[in-house]
Design a protein around this nucleic acid. Structure first.
Length: 429
RNA sequence: GGAGGGAUGGCCGAGCGGACGAUGGCGGCGGUCUUGAAAACCGUAGUGGCUGUAAAGUCACCGUGGGUUCGAAUCCCACUCCCUCCGCCA
């Protein structure tokens, strides 16, 4: 959520931000209209209330029965006017808040301007894709490799749960678990992150706090009976971990990491990426999340990207880093970088991490603040999130990059202690 | 799932219709004393909104949402969460 004060004082800044995001700037005028209406009502309500408070105190001290009754009658009228006006105030206030929740974060000035992902800027590239042609191998996509190795079962996944669900079997399941363990171990042992295990379903307000609601309701799974929502990402749970808290400056920055499954309906992506395990309704992810002092948030963002890159290098997977443009940076973020890994089987780059600085946008929604000194006014923290990393896509990259001519797959060295074998072959059975 | 008890400021805890934004204690901050520290003593201290250049004024907040009343932390209703006991259970 944006600071209403910012919208009042610099509406053109906000309109400009919306245009750059390919969004309709008209909402700014809706907000300004509601806001001035609200302030007018608030002032009427408060002056009536001030009068009532004052007179009510007098009534408490009055001895003269008649005069007292006269004041009581007078205040009864005031009370009626007050409740009418206050009802109006509340309606306008709710309408205003509802509008505000639809406005995205303002992109940072350094975010490249562009309408869609075509305008993202590649800023780095690491590793060179393996020369399969030179080896005389035609790289096979994972959707063929997986079933061939008997480690991915698409058909039975669909039988259980419908399209976009799959099953990992044997070393496939083990490889995924190995990645989860290794990621968490690196983050907690080397990078100073604190590991969390969180509920996979949360209350509605938590989705609002993280910015998924109201705008992305279509993409979420939801239990109607208890109004509980499945996490689309661990970010939602962790954003709200310190909801309504005032943190001490010395605690910051907080580096958190959590492994969770993620659930997404993928309605917007109907028909896209239907093959393989690239885009399922359920996937696993290790998520980094940080609460930081606003002064350091951009440094922290760079550091977070570096952590993601380090994981990819140690896995030996060629990748590139994209600086997201205004049309592609996420709703809650002011700036973001994507990490994309090379998938030779499908001749494509796969997004395996998106690191974002959400500045005070989520902190304002979830009300997470801090004090610079013990008696300073509380300020909103900045929050960052980034995948570290998204699992099924890393598995795709491993399978496709490390495949051999006989259809077996070499396990990257860092994972061998976790997987227990050097090479994944089809089980003879 | 059944029965009972509870929710007050950073923490503990009083208040049960009118001078209560809330006694008191602890903790915090500032000071006195001290070579320094502790103790003791004195003082200070919540969050947010609106108006205002400011000084200041005003409103709201005692789990949440409604209601009664001229007036609600206090009375009524609903909900949420916590505790105790019983049942069930990974």
């Amino acid at each position: 959520m944006l600071d209403i004060q910012l919208i009042r004082d610099h509406p053109e800044t906000v309109r400009d931000a919306l245009r750059k995001r390919n969004d309709n700037p008209a909402i700014v005028d809706d907000v300004l209209g509601l806001d001035s209406q609200w302030r007018e009502l608030l002032q009427s309500v408060e002056s009536l209330r001030a009068e009532r408070n004052r007179v009510s105190k007098e009534i408490g001290r009055m001895q003269d029965k008649q005069a007292r009754q006269a004041k009581i009658d007078e205040m009864r009228d005031v009370g009626e006017r007050l409740s009418g006006l206050d009802g109006e105030r509340r309606e306008v206030e709710e309408a205003l808040r509802a509008k505000l929740l639809w406005i995205p974060n303002i992109p940072d000035p350094t975010t490249p301007v562009g309408p869609d992902e075509g305008s993202n800027v590649e800023i780095r590239r690491w590793g060179s894709p393996r020369d399969f042609a030179a080896e005389g191998i035609k790289p096979v996509p994972h959707w063929d490799l997986g079933p061939e190795l008997d480690i991915i079962d698409f058909e039975r996944g669909v039988n259980l749960s419908g399209s976009r669900f799959y099953i990992l079997k044997g070393l496939g399941a083990r490889l995924q678990r190995a990645l989860i363990f290794w990621f968490l171990d690196v983050h907690t042992r080397e990078n100073g992150f604190t590991e969390f295990y969180v509920p996979f379903v949360v209350k509605r307000d938590m989705l609002v706090g993280a910015g998924q609601l109201p705008k992305f309701e279509d993409n979420l799974y939801h239990d109607v009976e208890d109004d509980l929502w499945l996490l689309p990402t661990a970010e939602v749970a962790i954003t709200n971990l310190h909801r309504d808290e005032i943190l001490d400056h010395q605690q910051l920055p907080l580096h958190y990491v959590a492994y969770t499954p993620c659930f997404r309906r993928e309605k917007m992506s109907a028909g896209r990426d239907v093959r393989g395990i690239k885009r399922g309704h359920q996937f696993d992810k290790v998520e980094m999340y940080e609460f930081v002092d606003p002064a350091t948030s951009y440094d922290e963002l760079n550091a977070m990207v570096a952590v993601g890159e380090d994981l990819l290098r140690r896995l030996g997977l060629p990748y590139r880093v994209l600086e997201l443009c205004t049309g592609d940076v996420s709703f809650a973020a002011a700036k973001g970088f994507d990490l994309e890994v090379w998938a030779p089987g499908q001749d494509a780059w796969l997004e395996v991490s998106s690191c974002s600085n959400c500045t005070d946008f989520q902190a304002r929604r979830a009300n997470v603040r801090f004090r610079t000194t013990p008696d300073a006014r509380p300020e909103f923290v900045h929050t960052l999130n980034g995948s570290g990393l998204a699992l099924p896509r890393i598995m795709i990259a491993i399978l496709e990059n490390y495949q051999q001519a006989d259809g077996s797959v070499v396990v990257p060295e860092v994972l061998r202690p976790y997987v227990g074998v050097d090479v994944i072959r089809r089980a003879l059975r």
